[in-house]
Design a protein around this nucleic acid. Structure first.
Lengths: 121, 121
DNA sequence: CCCTCAATTCGATATTTCTCGAAATATAAG
DNA sequence: CTTATATTTCGAGAAATATCGAATTGAGGG
């Protein structure tokens, strides 16, 4: 049940978040929680014309980071937390190991334990 | 000693990694470790003309994800692990909380503990 | 069925990104 | 000082992205 983590998917997801408006939208949806928010609602919150927002939402959706569901006459967009977790996992495993990123990790799990220390001291 | 994590910086770093060649280069530098690798060496490994690679390395450098140091007549590029950790931290804190991403996190630290569980079971 | 509200798709345009050969720069070696 | 090697900068073209008003589709309400 590992969500798709091909390199192409990773790049798509990074690209989806690598744009100020889209990052703002996604963060909005993260705090909004599983029920998400209506498109028009989001448009007002981030101050974008509907068509422009629609473009960005489509981008996020293509990347699998958000999902849409009809609710009456409006569309509710919600963050896909599993996809996001997959992205963070990839970055942690593939771009944060091998050397000095997570200090001293002789045994598997030590890197994460060190991470835990640093954050929960 | 918190590395710069302004939104603009985060977007720059995401954009830097959101490109197949650059992601490949960065991963190469991650496994290469703190000493990094020479530019020409990297160019051959990823199969890019020098000028094209130089463009991508400059991009990664602007974003603060890699650093360059002269070594004889070649330039050695190395991943900046602290910057990368900063990016992952941002994503974890700002895009992976609030709801179902890290399961059950009532007390601070629980989210990370849960993460630890999931990875080190 | 007609009207309205919500959202997307369609053009058209401006901007940015990517690519790569040719020329320039820097460092070492003879 | 001349030559060779490593890398960057320049310039120019092709492709992808971002923006937004106008036209279109979809879902309810009267």
């Amino acid at each position: 049940m590992e969500s798709d983590s091909s390199l192409a998917t990773i790049v798509d997801r990074l690209a989806a978040l690598a744009q100020p408006h889209r990052l703002a939208v996604f963060r909005l949806l993260v705090v909004a929680g599983p029920d998400g928010r209506a498109a028009g609602d989001i448009a007002e919150a981030v101050g974008l014309p509907g068509s422009t927002l629609s473009f960005h939402l489509a981008h996020l959706k293509r990347a699998g980071l958000v999902r849409a569901a009809r609710e009456g006459r409006s569309l509710h967009y919600a963050a896909d937390f599993a996809a996001m977790r997959g992205l963070v996992d990839f970055l942690t495993k593939n771009c944060c190991t091998g050397a000095a990123c997570a200090p001293v990790a002789e045994k598997p799990g030590d890197a994460l334990r060190a991470l835990l220390e640093r954050h929960v001291a």
